[in-house]
Each structure stands twice: as C-alpha cells, then as structure tokens.
Write a protein that binds this DNA or RNA. Structure first.
Lengths: 188, 188
DNA sequence: AGTAGGCTACCTAGTAGTAGGATGTCAACC
DNA sequence: GGTTGACATCCTACTACTAGGTAGCCTACT
C-alpha cells in the first residue's frame, strides 16, 4: 500500500496547488517515480483518483474535527483550532481541496459532486454545533441562527484562502480570522 | 471591434465558469464562429487574452463601484448593492473572474499576477472607504479597522460564491450576505 | 499598396487511457 | 519440495485526441 499512498499524497498536493485541470498523470508519475501507465493500475481514471482523494480528505478532516471537539477548550478556542487548519493549508501554498474543486465543479465528472457536497455539509454541521454550544454558554452573541453563522464562517475562511493566494498577504488572512472570532464574542 | 468584443465576452464566460485551465481556444472559436487560428490575430497567446480580460473586468467593476458610490444611499445600502454584483455572478453560474484566477494563480503566467492583485486591491480599497464612511456616520459598529473589515467582507463574498457552486444552495448565499451586513449595523 | 481579418493546413507537445507483456509473490496442490 | 496458477505491480509501446501556436495565403477596404 506504500505506492498507492504516495500517489494519493502527490495527487492531493497537485489538486490543491494547481486544480483538477492543472495537473496530469505525467506529473504524478514524475514525482513518485513510476510510469504513467502504472498509475492506471491503481486508479483507472482521473475521476477515480480524485474521488478517492475527496473521501480521504474528508476522513482526515473528520479526525481533526473530533480531536478539536473532544479537547477541553472553550468554543472560541475550538474555532481558532479549526481556523488553524486553514492557516496550515495556506502556509503550504495550497487551497482547501474542497474549495479548489468547488470552483472547478462545472468541469468535473458529476460523480464527484455528491462527495464534494458532503465535505462542505460536514464542515457546516460541525461549525454549527460549536457555535450553538458557545451560544448557550453565553460565550458567543449570534445575530442569526448558528447554521447561518457557520456558513458565513466557512465562506470567509475559504475566501480568505483564495485571496491570500492572489495577494500573498498572509497577515491579512490571520487578521480576518481574528476579526471573525472576535466578532462573535460577547462584548465587555 | 465587434468580433474582438465577442471573443472577450466568450472568453470571460469560459474563465468564470470553467477556469483558465478548463477551456481552450477551440471552445471560443466554436462559440463566436471563426477558426481557432483567427483568434490568434486578436490575442496572440492565451495569456494576452486573459490579461485583457482582467483589465476589462477591473474597468467594468470600477464603473459599477463609482455608480454605487455616487448614489445618494446610506452605506449599508451601498454594501448591499456591492453584494448584489456577486449575486448576479452566482445566478449566471459563474465565479468572480478574479476569484477563479486566484485559485489557479500557481499555474498562471506570472505576467498576470500584478493585474490580479490590483483587482483585489481595488475591491478592498473601495470597501474600506464605504465602511469608514458608515463608521463616522455611526451606522456601522466596527470591531477592527475598516480595512480589516473590508478584507473580511471580500473574503466572505468570494467564499460564499465558491461554496454556492458546490452546494447549489443560493439561499445560503443570500443569508450569508444578510448576516454580514446586519453584523455591521449598530444594534437597537 | 498596405493592412485588417479571416482562412486552410500544419506542427509540436501533451492529454487520458489501453494492450499486452515481464517479473515477482504467494498459496494450493501432488 | 517442487510445480502450477492466480494475482499484483510495473513496464514499453501505442492509440486517439486536444492543446496552444505558426505559416502562408486570400479577400476586402482604405
């Protein structure tokens, strides 16, 4: 299973940095050191490969979300930990895998879309839960429903990632994160 | 100049819907009804074409921003009008041209990046101005600097566009816009 | 005469994907 | 214990097609 994992790691990096339409099997072959044709043994089509990628990525996310949820920290610290994931993505010169594929969704095999939707649904669901908990603990002041705030936070983080790629301004990304969280906190 | 404009319109739509790496000269040729080779008469390279696109798009934006700025409406209405631009983009099945290219920036000819940066800088600058005016008029309550809020708003709008593409949930987009604006308003 | 705008025909490189063979591993069988 | 067959992994070689881009020609307008 060593080679399969190498292929997935290489493909994941390529999708996050260059997009589905921005890389080819040849790029992966060069990187992992086998021939292009051999890649088709593991993943018959590019769609198969990226579908696996989305599933793996979602599973990795799930593990992180559970780790954060189970930590004995206040809700605002959990939001910070969540934002920290995006920070790491930015530092490695990548987009969120889901975000990248979302922009390209009109060019993707429709078979990928359900998994992609699930990815975003899971993010929204988790954020909603954290916001609801922070709300009943009087930590957060919400001007809309927890689900609405969750979608807004997710949008802002994805967008901040996108903009930081164009501007190169990582400090602005951090500032946006801080503003998003401080905007939720009870004043005084 | 008729054909040139047709080419630009077609290319703009293709970039916004499919991304730089998701369309080809053949797609444009099919659409505008001339041969692929003839396109090179107007735009020698794909980079030339997209560079022009970014400049035109920025100029169109500038006109809209001035129109909104000069309207005799309160700052929150101006923000709504700005968000309305994004709403229209979403309804036509497109990403923001800048946002789409931003995600693909690692695969673009570096010659495109300065114009792309200017596009985002202009958006941020305009939003900052509107927010500052709303602030001195005691319409908005800001928890950070006007520039910080501007970047956050821009991020959230771009991200909301991206997510709406994956989920197909346009109502969520509208809700995010409302939440962003109501979150700025002075309470009570 | 020069230029703008279009054409056919072509080039080189790269795309995803296939065919079929070489090598190796491992388990079942006699 | 050695043979056999199934399967995994990787290869060379290739197909069919698309990519961006070029060469050179034709026509119409100024």
């Amino acid at each position: 299973m060593e080679m399969r994992d190498q292929i997935l790691a290489s493909a994941q990096r390529l999708v996050q940095q260059r997009g589905f339409n921005g890389f080819s099997y040849a790029d992966i072959a060069d990187e992992v050191g086998i021939r292009k044709a051999s890649l088709h043994h593991y993943f018959p089509t590019k769609t198969d490969l990226v579908l696996t990628l989305v599933e793996v990525y979602t599973a990795q996310l799930e593990a992180e979300l559970l780790r954060i949820s189970n930590a004995p920290s206040p809700a605002n610290a959990k939001l910070r930990a969540y934002a920290e994931i995006y920070h790491g993505t930015l530092e490695s010169g990548r987009m969120c895998l889901g975000g990248m594929l979302a922009t390209e969704s009109l060019t993707l095999d429709p078979a990928l879309l359900p998994s992609l939707k699930r990815f975003f649904a899971r993010n929204t669901e988790w954020l909603t839960e954290i916001l609801a908990v922070g709300h009943v603990q009087h930590l957060f002041v919400l001007t809309g429903s927890a689900a609405d705030h969750a979608r807004m936070l997710l949008s802002a983080l994805q967008g901040a990632l996108l903009i930081a790629r164009a501007t190169g301004d990582h400090a602005a990304f951090d500032m946006t994160v801080s503003l998003l969280i401080s905007g939720l906190l009870r004043k005084g």
